[in-house]
Design a protein around this nucleic acid. Structure first.
Length: 500
RNA sequence: UCCCCGAUAGCUCAAUGGUAGAGCGGCCGGCUGUUAACCGGUAGGUUGUAGGUUCGAGUCCUACUCGGGGAGCCA
């Protein structure tokens, strides 16, 4: 009977067949240990030399990493083994003996791994992350589908820049220059006047020349849009939506998160209500003593850690040079030292940036946008996500509704994820008044003719409405506690990176 | 666009300006319970590219290419 590794607990004592790939192999004279993966999990399969296994024993001993094979054997529960089960092998069918698989169990560089991305996500860590991504995407769709939203797919070819300022990819469209969409928002606004509550979900493209751990040139975004909604209603949906995502990932992926080293308890603390502050309050925090104290404390802690790490590296090196140390111990010590050196390099960059960040925060312009470091400060001063509302209109898009009490501000909201993961949601109430919207288009120097269809929405049955966009990859990076966004998508597209 | 760092065997890294090395991976052999197994043997190189300094360059200098990290900008 062909069984998936994930289902082995239901087949203890039975003879089953696994179909998969060889993750790792060790042999010990009369035994071969085949660690097999089948896409649902890992299972160690033990082949003992004997009359019954003679026909394939030698072949198993020489089997290369990632060889494809069918393994038949008796399932045994063994809590010590990965996955909790082990197979005592009675038969092996080698589908292909793979030779010289490039990704070995030893450390590799980032460049090498991502040049082999088509193989890289067979590795455990990447496999765990992409499983969580699957559930995140499923819950995004599920949440909106359960709550009466209609999916509206928006175009990827866009005739003009949706929001004006950003750098977009230009494409030749039968001789006419068009752009790859950076948002489906304007289109989804039109759809919400037809369906009430809608969302679009797809890839978006930004041509910004940003080479950082938070940027991709192609990333996925979900954008709900709700008719008869003001800013408070938009915030309420965003909060409920995030809670729902967190709960779903916690319930389905605790083991994956633990494998990834995520602090699961911190995720469990993500509950409504989130913090809610205005941009003006954020400015006060940044310019005030709390921000300075946070960064000063940070500087002290990181400096202390640098000294500690330097000491640890020196100790490892001394131990490695001492007499009587086995080769594998030396290797382990060298690997530890390499990890420590990497941490040291990161710390040094952070420490180097802190004075700059302190200056940026202290001199924060109350009429300016929050920078990346400002967002980090705000989020780190709170233990749950923070909604920041009412930004100056100058730093936001033309379609955001001007605030009734303060016409220099807009009814917008950004959600800052904890721990410096940055802005994962950006949204607003939209300007529904035809005249005001037209003025804003002109103020931003945009061509009114490009937006005639959009202005129609304000001519024919305009209503208060709003929505937001959530970046899937940044959200996943936060959920999994990842350092770099490139791990959150199967095929990352970054500046200067398009292979494979 | 700017700043910092890097490029040596398939991979990860060593090598005072003076004969290019190790570990892993590969291949061959050994070992009955391994967990990045271990032990012995073996093959593997135009030191990113182009110039320059020098008796001599992996090492020093210049430019370029590619990569990493950061700043700005952003989801």
């Amino acid at each position: 009977m062909i069984v998936s590794i994930v289902d082995l607990s239901r087949h203890v004592g039975q003879t089953v067949t696994l179909q998969g790939w060889l993750y790792h192999r060790r042999d010990s004279g009369k035994l071969v240990f085949l660690v097999v993966r089948d896409g649902t999990g890992l299972c160690q399969c033990v082949v003992a030399r004997g009359p019954d296994t003679d026909s394939f024993f030698e072949d198993c001993r020489r089997l290369g990493q990632e060889s494809s094979l069918r393994v038949t054997g008796v399932v045994r529960a063994d809590p010590k083994q990965v996955g909790g089960h082990e197979l005592t092998v009675t038969h092996v069918e080698i589908v292909q003996n793979a030779e010289n698989y490039p990704i070995t169990p030893k450390p590799h560089g980032i460049d090498f791994l991502f040049r082999h991305r088509h193989l890289h996500f067979r590795s455990r860590r990447q496999w765990h992350i992409l499983r969580v991504r699957h559930t995140l995407v499923d819950e995004i769709r599920g949440y909106f589908n359960r709550n009466g939203y209609t999916l509206i797919d928006t175009p990827i070819f866009a005739p003009s820049a949706g929001e004006g300022s950003q750098t977009l990819f230009s494409v030749d469209y039968f001789g006419e220059p068009v752009f790859l969409a950076q948002t489906g928002q304007l289109y989804v606004e039109a759809a919400c006047m037809a369906f009430g509550k809608v969302y679009c979900f797809g890839p978006t493209f930004r041509a910004e020349k940003s080479k950082t751990r938070r940027h991709l040139t192609e990333f996925w975004m979900v954008e709900p849009e709700i008719a008869y909604a003001d800013l408070d209603a938009v915030i309420a949906v965003a909060e409920d939506f995030i809670c729902s995502i967190v709960q779903r990932v916690l319930s389905d992926h605790r083991a994956d998160l633990e494998f990834l080293g995520r602090d699961v308890a911190a995720l469990e603390r993500i509950r409504a209500p989130f913090y809610r502050i205005t941009h003006r309050q954020a400015a006060e925090i940044l310019r005030g003593p709390k921000a300075r104290e946070l960064l000063e404390r940070d500087l002290a802690q990181k400096s202390a850690r640098i000294a500690e790490v330097q000491k640890l590296i020196a100790e490892k090196e001394t131990q490695a040079k001492a007499g009587g140390v086995k080769e594998w111990q030396k290797e382990k010590l060298a690997a530890d030292a390499a990890d420590l050196r990497e941490e040291l390099a990161d710390l040094e960059v952070e420490v180097q940036n802190i004075p700059h960040h302190m200056q940026l925060a202290a001199n924060f312009d109350p009429n300016g946008d929050l920078g990346g470091s400002d967002e980090t400060i705000i989020s780190r001063l709170h233990d749950r996500p923070v909604f920041v509302t009412h930004y100056p209109k100058g730093c936001k898009a033309f379609y955001m509704k001007l605030n009734a009490e303060d016409r220099t501000r807009v009814n917008n909201v950004d959600l800052l994820a904890p721990d410096g993961y940055g802005e994962i949601i950006g949204g607003s109430q939209r300007e529904e008044d035809l005249t005001t919207l037209r003025d804003r288009i002109h103020e931003d120097g945009l061509n009114e003719a490009d937006y005639e269809w959009y202005l129609d929405l304000r001519r024919y049955g305009t209503v208060p409405h709003g929505g937001f966009g959530l970046g899937v990859e940044r959200t996943l990076a936060w959920l999994c506690g990842l350092k770099h966004i490139r791990e959150t998508i199967p095929y990352p597209r970054m500046m200067g990176k398009i292979y494979p």
